[in-house]
């Protein structure tokens, strides 16, 4: 549905997007994860036919983003939530949506139905005749999402939809995206919120000018070598530490009476470690496994290759 092949965009000497290649299937929710300045917005703008690419290729539903005639067709089937909402403060919520409905060539009935549908869904129907200038940030963001959906697009581009929102608004927006996911919309989501990406996305690309890794959240977590064993002791002492040091383990950290140990092969090493502790007179209360998180994967890939 969304395919990029060696997609590159330069601004003068600066390469903002470097040989980006990925494929997103219909109905998939793709999280494009990267730090500020990674080139996420630039990528999204190229895919939504807003700015041109310098090199490479990108296709949306088979249409070429750099073809003049195709780009009009792409813009018709794509909905965009930009980084800045860009609503008209001097128009009412209803008029804002109606204006866009017209530009997206929706019929009058489609406009009426969709405006009411989305405004009700997002809790803004009572405010439809209120000037948008008086809206809170969260309300504006919801209205901008309604605007992106006004023409029933198959594909949605959301640029950091929950950035700068209070926790409650963030949750509303996130839940709404999850609803859209159920409707089988293809969603391209820019974010630097790992938790959000984990909860919403089927597939995640970790990106910092270059694509560092791509896969499902679980695949990415699994790709990080970070099997850590946590052992909670009744009382930590030097004798135990010495016994552990004799095992020549890789990395041992202590936190009060807790031990955090990197292990290569937990099934084999954990019993040996516990034996050593018991042998040194320690009392083991808990042995747990610390699995790698998406955050570990993210930090590894973003820091790794820069």
């Amino acid at each position: 549905m969304i395919d990029a092949e060696n997609l590159t965009r330069k601004f003068g000497d600066l390469t903002a997007v470097d040989k980006l290649t990925f494929h997103i299937k219909e109905g998939e929710v793709f999280g494009f994860l990267g730090p500020n300045g990674a080139g996420k917005t630039t990528t999204m703008r190229i895919l939504a036919c807003l700015i041109s690419k310098t090199n490479g290729e990108a296709r949306i539903a088979g249409y070429d983003v750099s073809d003049e005639a195709d780009s009009l067709k792409i813009r018709k089937i794509v909905g965009l939530l930009p980084e800045n909402v860009g609503l008209y403060d001097d128009l009412t919520a209803y008029k804002n949506l109606d204006f866009y409905g017209k530009l997206y060539e929706c019929s009058e009935t489609q406009r009426k139905e969709n405006i009411e549908h989305f405004l009700r869904l997002l809790g803004l129907w009572d405010k439809r005749e209120v000037l948008v200038g008086t809206f809170s940030k969260g309300m504006k963001q919801k209205l901008a999402i309604a605007r992106a959906l006004i023409h029933d697009p198959e594909i949605l581009f959301l640029d950091e939809p929950t950035a700068n929102l209070d926790p409650e608004s963030s949750k509303t927006v996130r839940d709404f995206i999850l609803d859209l996911k159920k409707e089988k919309k293809t969603i391209f989501l820019n974010t630097h919120n790992l938790d959000e990406a984990h909860r919403i996305c089927d597939k995640i690309g970790i990106f910092n000018t270059k694509l560092m890794a791509i896969g499902s959240p679980e695949e990415l977590e699994g790709s990080v070598w970070s099997n850590k064993t946590i052992i909670q002791l009744e009382q930590m002492n030097d004798k135990i530490l010495k016994a552990l040091n004799d095992l020549s383990l890789n990395n041992i950290r202590t936190d009060n009476n807790k031990l955090i140990i990197d292990v290569m092969n937990p099934e084999k090493e954990n019993p040996i470690i516990v034996e050593a502790i018991v042998g040194a007179g320690g009392h083991v209360q808990y042995v747990t496994r610390l699995s790698p998180t998406l955050e570990d994967a993210y930090l590894k890939f973003v820091r790794g290759n820069k």
Binding site: V78, P82, V85, G86, L87, Y88
Partner: peptide, 12 residues
């Protein structure tokens, strides 16, 4: 108002 971006995203 930064409304040019959503405006340019429409098939206009």
């Amino acid at each position: 108002e930064q409304s040019l971006e959503p405006l340019l995203a429409t098939p206009t």
